[in-house]
Design a protein around this nucleic acid. Structure first.
Lengths: 215, 215
DNA sequence: TGCGCATGTTACTAACGGTAACGGAAGTCT
DNA sequence: AGACTTCCGTTACCGTTAGTAACATGCGCA
């Protein structure tokens, strides 16, 4: 068997796969996460079974599609997290990077946050629980936890603390960003500043209101 | 027209509606958010069109179902938030109440967190963006924001700050809870303590590690 | 020429959400 | 009593979806 020919075909297949993904991208960005396989196939100029030969099932295609965007966003976040500045500025830069990304391409964001649909069903256990979050959120949480654990001295049990904080901070960023994207109550810089203030303990430091019940 | 008869019928309809909701509850708790209308109807001992006459469409049924659980959980959270104790203890009690709820009935939690599916489609704008979060998260965020705004003195622009924080804290709680429910890396009390520490600014106060790059 | 193999198609199944059309059982009005 | 409305319930259907089976075609290679 000719090896060069083999790789030639493999290269062609990967090229094809990229084309299909780009077509899928266009459709998903236009129709949202409910884009049908038929529509995607039509956009790519082919028919359904080819999509299924390349990606297995709809989940496979969506996972492949999500991986590209997720990797891109995670790269940008890592860069912000690694910038040469003090901790507060790094946190703000990371928050701003995430918010800028979801602001610039909200459809991509919407697609990435859509839960995994199914992935694999195990009818024995009923359905999976504690897996509502999108894979993107999980990955961001793990990465942030790693960065915190390796750079911040948290003493005894610091590792566990860092993991909780990683997922917690990512969830804070996500929820606030989603709400902000829907209501646009303020500018991005104000949102970043408010979230950083929250992480810096301003809630704990603030006094109770004089004219109301204490909190 | 006999009014007593009219209300009699209304009462019967509401009773029926409750029965249908309970049947739907059983199915959703067993099959997850992807329970079909046919299955729900079968569980209730009837057929599909009756469900549609009562709830309009699948979204209507799911919304009615979600409202019950959401109201119950929000009630519990309000109680924790209003307990007579200092702020740190209230925050911890609220976190613990939420986590205890999702721990005790994870299927309900999973169902509630499932985004709205569709609600109403407006093909003009493409698809809605910035509305990924479940209604439960939005409501929790708004409630918490209200409590913070009315009880904590945040000075100039405190209202906006409180809203950001409300949604941010709820998102933190949600993401950390979801991750915790999936991996069970520690006990509930430890998670509560770690999250409260995060809100109390321990991340900002901690030193850089001596043996690694600074953060 | 014939073999293997990847690529493409058409045509199908099963399930879903949702709806139209019909049937019967009550009570109500004349 | 008999016609009229109003629910409650059914069966049978529609359009769309994910996913698949079966068949056709073009290519390198012995």
């Amino acid at each position: 068997m000719d090896t060069t020919h083999r790789t030639e075909q493999q290269r062609a297949a990967e090229q094809r796969r990229r084309e299909l993904l780009e077509a899928a991208d266009r459709v998903v960005l236009r129709d949202g996460p409910r884009a049908s396989m038929n529509t995607i196939a039509a956009e790519a100029g082919i028919t359904k079974p080819i999509l299924y030969r390349h990606f297995g099932d709809k989940g496979g295609l969506y996972r492949a599609l999500a991986k590209r965007h997720t990797d891109a966003l995670l790269g940008a976040l890592r860069a912000a997290l690694d910038a040469p500045a003090d901790r507060r500025r790094r946190v703000e830069a990371t928050l701003d990077t995430y918010l800028a990304a979801i602001e610039a391409r909200p459809q991509v964001y919407r697609f990435l946050m859509h839960p995994a649909e199914d992935a694999g069903q195990q009818p024995e256990h009923g359905f999976d629980v504690g897996r509502h979050s999108a894979p993107l959120l999980r990955r961001m949480g793990e990465e942030l936890a790693e960065v915190i654990a390796e750079r911040v001295d948290l003493g005894e049990g610091g590792e566990a603390l860092a993991r909780v904080w990683g997922h917690g901070i990512v969830g804070m960023m996500h929820a606030a960003g989603d709400w902000w994207l829907g209501e646009r109550p303020c500018g991005r810089a104000a949102l970043v500043s408010a979230l950083a203030d929250l992480l810096w303990g301003r809630l704990a430091e603030a006094d109770d209101r004089a004219d109301g019940p204490r909190f």
